[in-house]
Computed example of a mutant assay.
Amino acid sequence: MRFAKLQGSGNDFVVIDNRDGKVEEFLRSLNLDIKEFVKKVCAFHTGVGADGLILIENPENPENHFKWQFFNSDGSVAEMCGNGSRCAVRFAFDEGIVGKEVRFETLAGVIRAYVLDGGKRIKVQLTPPKDYREVSLSLDTQSIEGYFINTGVPHFVAVVNDLEKIDVIKLGRAIRFHPEFQPKGTNVNFIEREGDDAIRIRTYERGVEGETLACGTGATASAIVAYKKGIVSKKPVRVLTKGGEVLAIDFDNDFREVFLEGGVVRVFDGFLRRELFEC
């Protein structure tokens, strides 16, 4: 089965054109469920290795160009993924499925996107953020203040003074599974001011269950929080990711139109062999 691997700001994804339903046929032939399929493909060392897997499918509404199914590396379904959406659009553009202006369907709603620089940069308009609130959490050894906001998926944002000293895995996991955010939990972002229009970020991602090099919806959530709280005063907000790339987040004054822009790389194409799923 043919696939491509793409990465946006260090978030990497396996993308498969499933408009002909070949994935379901493949799963039936192996008596395998989709969750196990995703876990085997995304596993580092024994599989392709990726933060998530994306299936490109036919849209339910013919006015849109495609629909996606998005899976985290543990096989769980996510409503939205900012960097994943940019990789999906780049793949669809490369394959001739879309032109330079795109509409595609996600569980978070219809996403608009724009192909720039021949596909090397992708700009997506995310769904309007919701459920913003200030949150105070009591953990086992400390308390932490932060902000909750949903930018297609839930995010907690904490402002810190020394980003590099944060134990993202330990603290992120404690917040991710905190009773405040049950039953689904939340993604967790730690941010530090870098200038009037810039922040640095580190993110613990739900579903990956670890720190990732970048998170598009997390960068968006963090940029909005930073702007709302006066941590930055100019926009677009530049978000410096753990992977070293910079994401640009822009929005109108009432946050009804929110855009995420950054680079995308098509890393390689390959074929999945049945042997991977039979061992």
Score class of each variant (00 low, 15 high):
residue 66 F to W: 08
residue 218 G to N: 05
residue 93 F to A: 09
residue 111 I to T: 09
residue 176 R to L: 07
residue 69 Q to M: 10
residue 157 V to I: 14
residue 241 T to F: 08
residue 28 R to G: 15
residue 131 D to C: 09
residue 129 P to E: 09
residue 16 I to W: 01
residue 57 E to R: 13
residue 153 V to M: 03
residue 185 G to A: 06
residue 154 P to Y: 11
residue 94 D to N: 15
residue 130 K to L: 11
residue 265 V to F: 12
residue 56 I to M: 00
residue 66 F to T: 02
residue 220 T to D: 08
residue 178 H to V: 12
residue 58 N to Q: 14
residue 247 L to R: 06
residue 130 K to T: 15
residue 171 L to S: 01
residue 84 G to D: 02
residue 109 G to K: 01
residue 256 R to L: 13
residue 7 Q to G: 10
residue 150 N to W: 11
residue 160 V to M: 00
residue 138 S to I: 13
residue 17 D to E: 07
residue 141 T to E: 15
residue 125 Q to H: 12
residue 60 E to D: 15
residue 143 S to M: 13
residue 204 Y to N: 01
residue 75 G to N: 00
residue 227 Y to N: 02
residue 81 C to I: 04
residue 271 F to K: 15
residue 148 F to G: 12
residue 11 N to S: 02
residue 80 M to V: 01
residue 108 A to H: 07
residue 205 E to C: 08
residue 138 S to Q: 14
residue 234 K to G: 00
residue 125 Q to P: 04
residue 58 N to H: 09
residue 222 S to D: 02
residue 177 F to W: 11
residue 236 P to S: 00
residue 263 G to N: 15
residue 87 C to A: 11
residue 13 F to E: 04
residue 148 F to T: 07
residue 201 I to M: 13
residue 55 L to R: 01
residue 2 R to T: 09
residue 118 G to K: 10
residue 158 A to Q: 13
residue 50 A to W: 02
residue 224 I to D: 05
residue 72 N to T: 02
residue 25 E to D: 14
residue 28 R to D: 15
residue 34 I to T: 11
residue 272 L to E: 00
residue 130 K to V: 15
residue 138 S to W: 07
residue 194 E to P: 04
residue 162 D to M: 05
residue 191 I to E: 02
residue 122 I to D: 04
residue 80 M to I: 03
residue 161 N to T: 01
residue 138 S to L: 12
residue 130 K to I: 14
residue 228 K to W: 00
residue 87 C to D: 02
residue 89 V to W: 02
residue 130 K to Q: 14
residue 167 D to V: 00
residue 53 L to T: 01
residue 98 V to R: 03
residue 182 Q to E: 15
residue 29 S to R: 15
residue 244 G to L: 09
residue 14 V to P: 00
residue 96 G to W: 09
residue 86 R to Q: 08
residue 65 H to Q: 09
residue 213 L to C: 11
residue 263 G to A: 15
residue 39 K to L: 02
residue 151 T to M: 07
residue 207 G to V: 08
residue 124 V to A: 12
residue 48 V to K: 07
residue 225 V to A: 08
residue 200 R to I: 01
residue 211 E to L: 04
residue 156 F to T: 00
residue 249 I to G: 07
residue 71 F to P: 08
residue 51 D to Q: 02
residue 140 D to W: 10
residue 227 Y to K: 13
residue 52 G to Q: 03
residue 45 H to M: 12
residue 19 R to Y: 08
residue 135 V to C: 07
residue 198 A to I: 06
residue 162 D to P: 00
residue 19 R to T: 13
residue 141 T to Y: 14
residue 1 M to K: 12
residue 200 R to H: 11
residue 243 G to T: 06
residue 247 L to I: 05
residue 155 H to W: 08
residue 14 V to T: 09
residue 48 V to M: 05
residue 232 V to Q: 01
residue 159 V to A: 11
residue 64 N to P: 02
residue 117 D to V: 09
residue 242 K to Q: 14
residue 95 E to N: 14
residue 198 A to N: 06
residue 123 K to D: 08
residue 262 G to Q: 05
residue 190 F to N: 00
